[in-house]
């Protein structure tokens, strides 16, 4: 019985310490969060971390027990004194706990976080404030258009495609693959994945289908300031895949308005 209580006490103590560390580390799990959705994912990940840490401590402690406490002493050649073949309490507890923990994790955060995300999408669609950005993926680049403002393809001063978003305003990305979709050309384009690391969300772009992604940016920043603020293709799409990225700027609402004006001027001038 001594081993049992000793193990139990050490496990509780270590788990509490480890969970305390995990609660701090977990807050930085996503490294940099710049959207509502990233914060939700961050919360889910942090919750998961706190849940799995005691399990981790339990198994690893057992490995150390094997290494030190239960190690065969020099010169001892006999079989183990304990030859227990089954222990109802241990097996029952293990099976029940793993079932409960998994079901629990499925309800929260798995189902709950997805629920929140889908509801956000529906709420954004109803909101009059929603910004719609049409994203077109093509080997190997992104192009962005803003149908609400009549911007056909946003570009920066060097002529590169660029994504500008106003802070704290819901955005709906409409993701399409390049091509007219007339069904005549055999190979229109390949699968890409639209990913902005700081936004904590990625959605694949499938040729012949339209996908949506809903984001509310919360931090004013840009690619130069933080490398995670970039539009990146995350699904391998050919030799140009590593270069398939675009700059991202999240700006204040007023700066966004003036950027729109400038884009429109650029567009009519050219």
């Amino acid at each position: 019985m001594g081993d049992f209580w000793g193990f139990g006490i050490i496990w509780v103590v270590l788990s509490v310490i480890a969970d305390w560390i995990a609660s701090i580390v977990g807050r930085h799990f996503y490294v940099f969060t710049a959207s509502v959705q990233a914060q939700e994912g961050q919360a889910a990940a942090s919750f998961l971390l706190m849940t799995v840490v005691p399990i981790f401590v339990f198994v690893v402690m057992m490995l150390f027990y094997a290494l030190f406490r239960f190690r065969r002493r020099k010169g001892d050649t006999g079989s183990s004194t304990s030859q227990v073949k089954f222990n109802k309490a241990y097996v029952g507890l293990w099976v029940t706990l793993s079932l409960v923990v998994n079901l629990f994790l499925f309800v929260h955060p798995t189902a709950s976080a997805m629920q929140v995300y889908w509801q956000e999408g529906q709420a954004y669609n109803k909101s009059s404030n929603e910004l719609i950005v049409d994203v077109t993926a093509q080997q190997w680049g992104w192009s962005f258009s803003y149908p609400q403002y009549g911007i056909q393809e946003s570009v920066d001063s060097n002529g590169n495609d660029v994504l500008y978003l106003p802070v704290d305003r819901p955005v709906k990305f409409v993701l399409n693959s390049y091509g007219d979709g007339d069904g005549l050309s055999e190979q229109i384009d390949v699968i890409h994945s639209f990913w902005i690391p700081a936004f904590g969300m990625k959605t694949d772009v499938i040729p012949g289908e339209t996908r949506y992604e809903y984001i509310t940016p919360t931090v004013i920043s840009d690619t130069q300031q933080n490398g995670m603020m970039r539009v990146q293709c995350a699904e391998v799409c050919g030799p140009g895949h590593p270069y398939m990225e675009s700059n991202l700027h999240v700006v204040s609402q007023s700066n966004f308005a003036s950027w729109v004006q400038q884009q429109l001027k650029l567009q009519s001038g050219s």
């Binding site: 027990y65 094997a66 239960f70 065969r72 079989s79 304990s82 227990v84 241990y90």
Partner: peptide, 9 residues
């Protein structure tokens, strides 16, 4: 783990 427990490892 059940096998390791209280064994002569």
């Amino acid at each position: 783990i059940g096998t390791i427990w209280k064994s002569k490892f």
